[in-house]
Structures are given as structure tokens and as C-alpha cells.
């Protein structure tokens, strides 16, 4: 389905990654252009803020899980990913899926109002008050705001996401050279894209790997803190995939 002009392997890879990214993102790229999402009203915000902590955590865990499932589907569509061993596919997804979810968030971030799309409308950080983890929420919004300011194209986000997943530096990989080879192809494709579009300056402005890792660690810490305060809720009421990855 690619035009004849795209014979260079890295261009083909970029197209393939873009297709996988578009097919597995929500909201879809078409819905981002000139979006007409409403902002939550005062009453709606109060309603969310009045929810018991355990309920709000469960609600957010469900939304995160839906996003993770889309990232798993993205990974499966990445050329070469399914050729890795099952073990390494699991290692890479366990380590990288949340990072991709966090990066993808910037697509549905409205910089003018500092809100993010949540359950169909735009929400500011205060909506999540009942979670009881204001620093984590603030860090996530800061990340989304910073990424949003970079005005990344869907191709850039697709390749960035692929590189977050296909990371030969993750611990416990069985066949590190194989992952490194795939990572190398994606890395070249990304650099070729940036050169072609004169966006090489993007590299220095991206969040550092350490920052994303710290954010994911913060999330894990908050899950543990929540479990201590609300024993049994995670086991009884959280999505199984969320428990498997984070609890």
C-alpha cells in the first residue's frame, strides 16, 4: 500500500510504525484536528472529587488498562516484535507499556487550558484529587504539557513509542542482541525522519529516559501506598492486567 517512491527501508519502517500507531491510538488522529471536546463543568469536577478514593483509583486503573491494551496491540503490529521470544516480548512490554501510555497522553492534552482528555471530556489535575496522589498527577500533567509543546507529528510519536518499547537496555532480556538490532533499525528510521523534516532539534528536547522511568516508579509507589491504605481492593476490583503489571 506504500507509494513506489518509498523504497528506502527506513522510510518503509517509518510508514509501518505510523500505521500501527494510528491504528492503536485513542483518540484517533482524525479526531485531534480541531477537536470539539467539552471541558468538565464545575459540577462534574465536584462529582469526581467526591468519589471515594478506592472508586476513583479503580476508575483510573480501568482507563490505564484500556490504554495499555492498545499499546500491547501496537507492539504486536511492530515489525519484528513478534519475532522476539515470548519472554522478551513480555519483558519489554512490562517495562515500557506505561511509558508509552504516558507519552501518548500528550496527543489529547490541551495546552491552552492545561487539561487532558479523560472519559470523553477535558480534565485538569484537580479532577483527580480523590486519588490522593497530587505529586504523581502533577508530574504526569507536567510531562504531557512539555511533550505537547514539542508539537510532535504522529510519525514522531509512533517512532518514539516504538523506541520506548524496543529497548535493548531493559533488564532480564534473553536475546539482547536481537532486540538491539530491531532498536537500531527504529533508531535509524527516527533519525532519517528528523533529518528529512528538519526536526533534529527535537532530540535534545525530549524527556530523558530517567524522567519517564522515575514517573513509572512514582506510579508503582502510589499503587503500593494505595494497597496499604485499602487492602483487598486491588485484588478484588482492579483489572487483572493492571494487577499483573503494577501490583
Amino acid at each position: 500500500a506504500c507509494p513506489q517512491a518509498l523504497r528506502v527501508p527506513s522510510e518503509l519502517l517509518t510508514q509501518s510504525v505510523l500505521l500501527s500507531h494510528r491504528a492503536t491510538c485513542h483518540p484517533r488522529a482524525e479526531d485531534l484536528q480541531g477537536h470539539r471536546w467539552a471541558t468538565f463543568s464545575r459540577e462534574e469536577i465536584c462529582a469526581y472529587q467526591s468519589q471515594p478514593t478506592a472508586e476513583m483509583w479503580q476508575r483510573c486503573a480501568r482507563r490505564v488498562t484500556e490504554a495499555i491494551e492498545r499499546v500491547v496491540e501496537f507492539a504486536k503490529r511492530l515489525r519484528g516484535f513478534l519475532e522476539l521470544s515470548q519472554h522478551d516480548q513480555i519483558v519489554l512490554l512490562k517495562a515500557g507499556a506505561m511509558e508509552v501510555v504516558l507519552v501518548r497522553m500528550c496527543r489529547a492534552f490541551d495546552a491552552a487550558t492545561r487539561t487532558v482528555l479523560f472519559e470523553g471530556k477535558l480534565a485538569g489535575p484537580e479532577l483527580f484529587r480523590s486519588l490522593g496522589c497530587p505529586e504523581l498527577v502533577a508530574s504526569i500533567f507536567d510531562l504531557a504539557q512539555g511533550l505537547s509543546a514539542l508539537r510532535c507529528s504522529e510519525s514522531e510519536l509512533g517512532l518514539l513509542s516504538a523506541l520506548l518499547l524496543v529497548n535493548a537496555g531493559r533488564p532480564w532480556l534473553q536475546d539482547r542482541p536481537r532486540v538491539a538490532r530491531l532498536q537500531g533499525h527504529l533508531d535509524v528510521a527516527f533519525r532519517v525522519l528528523l533529518r528529512r523534516t528538519r526536526r533534529e532539534g527535537l532530540l535534545a528536547r525530549l524527556p530523558s529516559p530517567g524522567r519517564l522511568r522515575a514517573l513509572c516508579s512514582q506510579h508503582l509507589e502510589q499503587v503500593q501506598a494505595f494497597r496499604r491504605l485499602h487492602p483487598g481492593v486491588v485484588s478484588a476490583a482492579f483489572p487483572p492486567l493492571y494487577r499483573e503489571l503494577f501490583a
Binding site: 491494551e69 504486536k76 516480548q89 513480555i90 512490554l93 492486567l241 499483573e244 503489571l245
Partner: peptide, 16 residues
């Protein structure tokens, strides 16, 4: 794979 049955199942599931 034993500790990640759901992830394993999602990866096996051929719905791409």
C-alpha cells in the same frame, strides 16, 4: 510467562 498470564495471552491472541 507464568507471572504474566494475561500479557502472555494477549500476545498469543491473534487479533492483529
Amino acid at each position: 510467562q507464568e507471572k504474566h498470564r494475561i500479557l502472555h495471552k494477549l500476545l498469543q491472541n491473534g487479533n492483529s
